[in-house]
Design a protein around this nucleic acid. Structure first.
Lengths: 216, 216
DNA sequence: CTCGGTATACTTGTCTAACAATCTGGAGCT
DNA sequence: AGCTCCAGATTGTTAGACAAGTATACCGAG
């Protein structure tokens, strides 16, 4: 049995631990994740391990074909591009709506403050607050379904970051400057300009990551 | 065992049949869907029924709390609004991109032709081609993740249609006219105007459905 | 008559055990 | 060398069992 408090159940606990291992990079891609291995690793029965694996397959964290072992999905350049373009679509819509009401998302500003604390440091440390900034913009819409769609994208980004291990990142200064510019434009009601900054912001990250992912 | 060809497996077949029953309205909301009932209904073992139910819970078709029976989710006015606003966000982004390249989605025009065949008929018959029209616009982006996000929304719309049973629908003429206007504007490269038509188009449907769902 | 606590029935959660179906990789043969 | 076939490994499915939790019905007290 897995350690810790059992709020939900064995299957969810195992799924959570497995997800953390997958997006954290502890499980390298293409390594088979068999039901037996998961069962032994977390000391649960095989059906429980199976259920946890199937849950993650449903979420897209793992991939599997019939009668084959599951494996951590390896993101290629096309997948990275698709993730970032979908991010841009959702986030652009959010920005336009927020700018239309001149509504500045406070949670995004707080995430920016955390990024500012790492000025001059490594960009790896700001992956989390950066994603929190972008998620805050989307969450400001108060739309359960829009946020859910965006969340699955951020998890893929996190997994991608673990895969490239800090290569191809953009300087903290640039990220922070563009974030603040976007917030200013939203507060000023200029949605189109804010969307343009976002397109530049995400487009550059897309290019960098796609290039790095393609060259191991 | 469920009838038909087993391409994938028992669990997927049962899940598919259950999903069809849920979004088709055969399973009314709030009616408990127990594992034992599903197992008996499709002549499978309880673990298989359990897996199928959990798959649908993961997709959001069914909802369940611990140790309680699963049930078909009942959509309320807030849920309908959230679905339609999220649809608008994704579809607006798609329209802007397509209009930017003056790229007219052919599959959407084909769906419109099918709608035209029902002119003067009941709006219930065009639910499918109407959703196909909108999906075609999104699918024209060629983005796996964007399409997947939109697909889950269309399934919720379908379920909602089964729930309201044809009340509060909009005339076929109006729908078709707005569809064709959107395609024209996309081909002309006027994305903003096309988005405005879409907002009107979906906004009206949102209001109608939300009102109908709220009054049983 | 109403309220509250208990007990029971129902449902899900988890595990053990087993066998069938299928895929992979290598041994052996041509 | 290339192909075939077999054995091992892994998943797919089922059966049965017991534990754990929730909701509801029932009964007694006020």
């Amino acid at each position: 049995m897995v350690e810790g408090i059992r709020v939900t159940g064995v299957v969810d606990a195992v799924a959570e631990a497995l997800r953390a291992a997958a997006i954290g990079g502890e499980l390298e891609p293409d390594r088979p994740v068999t039901e037996a291995w998961v069962a032994a690793r977390f000391a649960v029965a095989r059906p429980s391990a199976k259920a946890a694996i199937e849950k993650l397959v449903g979420e897209g964290v793992l991939e599997r074909t019939a009668h084959r072992s599951a494996r951590v999905r390896r993101l290629d350049a096309d997948a990275v591009r698709d993730v970032y373009r979908t991010r841009r679509r959702i986030e652009s819509a959010a920005i336009r709506e927020l700018a239309g009401e001149r509504r500045r998302p406070d949670a995004a500003a707080e995430a920016d403050a955390e990024i500012a604390a790492h000025l001059g440091g490594s960009s790896v440390d700001i992956v989390d607050p950066d994603l929190r900034f972008h998620s805050a913009i989307v969450d400001a819409l108060g739309s359960e379904r829009t946020s859910r769609a965006y969340r699955s994208l951020t998890e893929e980004v996190r997994q991608c970051m673990a895969q490239v291990q800090g290569r191809g990142l953009i300087s903290v200064d640039t990220i922070l400057a563009e974030h603040e510019r976007m917030l200013e434009l939203i507060a000023a009601g200029d949605g189109e300009a804010a969307v343009a900054v976002l397109a530049e912001h995400l487009g550059r990250a897309e290019e960098r990551l796609a290039a790095v992912v393609a060259t191991p």
